[in-house]
Amino acid sequence: MPQWIDACATDDIDEEDLIRFDHAGATYAIYHSPEGDFFATSGMCTHEAVHLCDGLVMGHLIECPKHNGQFDYRTGEAKRAPVCVNLKTFPVKVEAGRVLIEVP
């Protein structure tokens, strides 16, 4: 049953950056776009088991810190080898300065 989870405060993440959020044995990445919007994806690269939270956000791309594969974090689309499999994304909403993500 999907549920909305309080992940962080909006000012916990710099613009054009991300943080890691762990919940119920799963790891997520929460993004703050240059336009001020928030997004959420699974926290691990689909190429190999590497946390994306150490990677670099460039515009709407997140680059994996290990092999430099890139995803569009808004859609999860794999954009640069060696990643071939898209990243799972999760709905996000902001309420009273808090970022909430909907997780399965």
Binding site: H47, E48, K66, H67, A81, P82
Partner: peptide, 10 residues
Amino acid sequence: WRWSHARHHT
């Protein structure tokens, strides 16, 4: 070689 080098880093 793009892939072999990814493995070299893994």
